[in-house]
């Protein structure tokens, strides 16, 4: 079997034994230092632990969708709080967009 040089490179048994053995010990230990958690490795859960996505419906709705084809919206949500000088476009800029009509 001929592998390319990248995938045929493998870490040594000794290095793996050291890493996996240490991981075994560390993974059962109490959570690591607060500073490390702040940076990486802390697991985050969603609001209300709810990530279920949508369900089906057998009901109608009384909400009304504006089915206009003309586009007039600009992003006006929490993204405005992250606006920075590095932002390529900036916010609040009026964008004109018209959805393509079906031919």
């Amino acid at each position: 079997m001929s592998n390319n040089t990248l995938t045929s490179t493998t870490l040594s048994a000794a290095a793996l034994a050291l890493a996996l053995g240490s991981a075994l010990a560390l993974s059962t230990a109490p959570a690591v230092g607060a500073e490390m958690e702040k940076c990486f490795g802390v697991a985050l859960k969603g609001k209300n632990d709810c990530a279920a996505g949508p369900g089906t419906t057998c009901a109608g709705t009384s909400k009304v969708d504006d089915q206009s084809n003309s586009w007039k919206h600009v992003p006006k949500g929490s993204c405005e709080k992250t606006a920075s000088s590095t932002s390529p476009t900036g916010f609040g800029q009026l964008m004109a967009f018209t959805a393509k009509k079906k031919s």
Binding site: T57, C58, A59, G60, T61, S62
Partner: peptide, 17 residues
């Protein structure tokens, strides 16, 4: 939910809401 049709007659929507 209650709505109206084009003639103003009641049109009920089955919203389960």
């Amino acid at each position: 939910a209650e709505d109206l049709d084009a003639a103003g007659a009641p049109l009920l929507i089955d919203t389960h809401g």
